[in-house]
Design a binder for these strands. Structure first.
Lengths: 233, 233
DNA sequence: TAGATTGTTAATCGATTAACAATC
DNA sequence: TAGATTGTTAATCGATTAACAATC
């Protein structure tokens, strides 16, 4: 199992204070894709309007949470009527910048990297993958879902042409830091990494860690809280 | 791209109140795998002791956070000396229940499911995958990393023998709810799902959603907060 | 109108951070 | 001892929830 999940690489407290108070509610941002998924399904079903109560039901979230989250989008609804599905979709896509997908590359065309490339889920989620990189002769020179796989050594050369903003890092543990360094050298300023380990990157590069094992830890702890001694009441 | 990431399926507010105040710090639980990964690397390097400052550096977290998180494990260190790497590893594994891996099955042997099965990361993270399930003739009857792939129709029959506690759900969107129903019918009480959509399950079944696109949303919002108008000071 | 839904404001709750006393 | 590190307690911070006024 690759070690991925979902922790922002730590921003030390001191740095955050320098930037002043937090401007965005990140847990709310993380919920937006859930709304978006539900809304796209509503739209596919020919449903033109939704209430916050319906969205809460569809996403498994609470009604007040839905209201609060929508309020940050600047999309307005109408009392007694609800929201236009189309406006909400547009509002979320705009807020996340998913309406204008960013140029991206992926490094590490193993099992996870291949699975991500094949899913066709990047484009509707804000990323346009222009190329993949891996030195493994099994994939080097091939195409995965139409995306060419180059050697890692070609990254810096191709970066001049591709101008990627985002790097998806699905390399194996030992190559994670070297690949991160290649990303930085290629001018990439946003790294989405599926490795457990922390990355060392210069200031100005944003790292998002996807730590799958964190979800596994949470699942086991949440479930044993119930089966344990403290049954409700 | 499969739609995975990391949201606990919502526990409605009312239900949570019935259970009284929250007993565990879930964000802290989610950080434990990061410590564990760093500690295992320390151990592999022959390092017998660590301080919280070293752990903070290795994981990219803050020193007070490390102290607070360790305090919930019941592992004690020694002033001026630090903690024994071995004790911390044992403490985290015990806290998470990863020292006694749970019987599990996986349904949906597509790109993501295969990647998870091949990684050999389940066992050291609390899960023992006994079997996989998928109706796709391309994988049905084969073995992935030594794990047999059965038809979904055999799940309930095999469950009597395998007695799985945990179900990993990597099926494609349209099969997610049906597979969840099969899991529940098979007596599975903990579901780790990689689908964006909410699952409908009876009370007593714990669902952990891994929503990868949430991480993507967070990455883009966090990074544009810096490149936008509000540059620090 | 009456009633349902939006959308905001205030209250609660929980996590993180900072500070510091205890310990080796 | 002096100094560094643990480990806890208090203060701060931020997110969630609840309540309700505004609106259609």
């Amino acid at each position: 199992m690759p070690s991925a999940g979902s922790e922002a690489q730590d921003v030390p407290a001191a740095d955050r204070r320098k930037r002043g108070p937090r401007l965005v509610n990140l847990p709310a941002v993380r919920r937006l894709p859930l709304y978006l998924g539900a809304l796209r399904r509503f739209r596919a079903d020919g449903c033109g309007r939704v209430s916050t109560a319906e969205l809460a039901l569809a996403t498994g979230l609470s009604d007040p949470a839905v209201k609060k989250d929508i309020s940050m989008l600047g999309v307005t609804g109408r009392a007694r009527i609800g929201y236009e599905v189309k406006s909400l979709i547009a509002g979320i896509e705009r807020y996340l910048g998913w309406d204008r997908p960013r140029r991206a590359v992926l490094a590490g065309v193993g099992g996870l990297g291949t699975a991500l490339l094949c899913g066709d889920g990047f484009q509707p989620r804000g990323l346009r993958i222009l190329a993949a990189f891996d030195d493994d002769p099994a994939v080097l020179g091939t195409r995965v879902n139409g995306i060419p796989v180059h050697g890692l050594g070609e990254l810096s050369r191709l970066a001049g042409k591709l101008k990627p903003e985002v790097g998806v890092l699905t390399a194996s543990p030992s190559r994670v830091q070297p690949v991160a360094d290649l990303f930085v050298a290629a001018g990439i300023t946003r790294i989405w990494t599926f490795a457990e380990q922390a990355l060392s990157v210069p200031r100005g590069v944003t790292v998002q860690r996807e730590v799958l094992s964190a979800g596994l830890a949470e699942l086991l702890v949440r479930s044993s809280r119930n089966s344990g001694k403290n049954i409700a009441d």
